[in-house]
Simulated scan of single mutants.
Amino acid sequence: MTLAPAQRTAPAAAWTDARLLLALEEVVEGELNRHLKVAKEWMPHEYVPWSQGRDFDGVMGGEAWELGQSKVTPLGRVSLVVNLLTEDNLPSYHHEIATMFGRDGAWGTWVHRWTAEEGRHGIAIRDYLLATRAVDPVALERARMEHMGAGFESDNAHSMLHSVAYVAFQELATRISHRNTGHFSGDPLCEQLLAKIANDENLHMVFYRNLLKAALEIAPDLAMQAVRDVVTQFRMPGHGMPGFERSAAQIAIGGIYNLRIHHDDVLMPVLRHLRVLELTGLGPAGLQAQQELGLYMDGLNTQATRFEERQAALLARRAAAAERKAG
């Protein structure tokens, strides 16, 4: 997209959300058309081992769930539940982006397309978990009710640029989480399913990342401030689910998602691709935001290194304890 001179030179104060939505409409249309060309149809039911399924206890009088009925690893089970409960809040996410981006034109078409693609993720994961008896179905349903009952409200509802910046990073974070969960699940079929979901999330990330790039071109100071705010205040969308802190700690120690991964595999790839820390021509507010972002990333890298040291020490103690027990 070639931006008109008036778009490139408009002062930050002139950029209302409504004007930004209009200015970026052409970019959204182009990204939507690109997405539709590269996105490949896939069927969730093809990745569920239905032949492993059987009746549970209750109305059907089947077999009660027990922990040893699935080959999914304990770490994989924890992460699968977190990922599924995150996907379950799709109605709230749809409400957030539909309210912010609207339901008309290219923006609206994208909102509905994104929602449809995200919807199959929860369907596929839940069907897999129940067919393979990987989780307690009663505990899962109660957690779903509690999590969805609380709803979801974005931490980054300051402006539409905050929303765009957040999803540019969050979609990549979700992709990494799904991919690594599959790797640690202990089940090749689960890994294959989550790879399909991760591919969807990657395409969503590319859409929002390219949109953020255009925003940095037309409103660099505002976009830079939004990126700084999102990066320094980032939380995963499932942070409000029951038991999230404990699950997140297990996921971090297990190597599915932690500070090092967040820094190296989520934040830095997007920042590098957009050259956010090298962007020139910023005004005072944008320059300050850029400097604060750079300082934050340096500090986060230091925190990630400290986490790695603690993680290595903990895993070494666990391995030693397991060896003593086995001996």
Rank of each mutant, 00 (worst) to 15 (best):
A18F: 00
L24W: 10
R34E: 11
R34M: 04
R34F: 01
K37S: 10
V38D: 05
A39Y: 15
P44V: 00
H45A: 15
H45G: 08
V48K: 09
V48Q: 12
W50I: 10
Q52E: 15
R54H: 15
G58C: 04
G58Q: 03
G61A: 09
G61P: 14
E63P: 03
Q69S: 10
Q69Y: 09
K71Y: 11
P74Q: 11
G76F: 11
G76E: 06
V78F: 07
L80E: 03
V81L: 13
V81N: 02
N83V: 06
L85P: 09
N89T: 15
S92D: 15
S92G: 14
E96A: 14
A98M: 12
F101M: 13
R103F: 09
W107K: 11
T115D: 03
T115M: 08
I123Y: 11
R126G: 00
T132N: 11
D136M: 07
P137S: 05
R144W: 14
R144D: 07
D155T: 05
H158I: 00
L161P: 03
H162I: 09
H162Y: 07
V164C: 10
Y166M: 08
A168T: 09
F169H: 06
F169S: 03
L172I: 05
I176T: 07
R179A: 15
H183D: 15
C190R: 15
Q192R: 15
L194D: 14
L194W: 00
N199T: 10
D200E: 11
E201D: 08
E201I: 03
R209W: 00
R209K: 12
N210L: 09
L211K: 06
L212R: 09
A215K: 02
M224I: 14
V230A: 01
M236L: 13
G238E: 06
G240Q: 12
G243V: 05
F244I: 03
S247C: 08
A248T: 02
A249E: 13
G254T: 02
H262K: 06
M268T: 11
V270E: 08
L279V: 12
T280P: 12
G281R: 12
G283Y: 00
A285P: 04
G286K: 05
G286E: 03
L287Y: 07
Q288N: 11
Y296G: 01
G299F: 05
T305A: 15
F307Y: 13
A313H: 08
L315N: 08
R317I: 00
A322M: 10
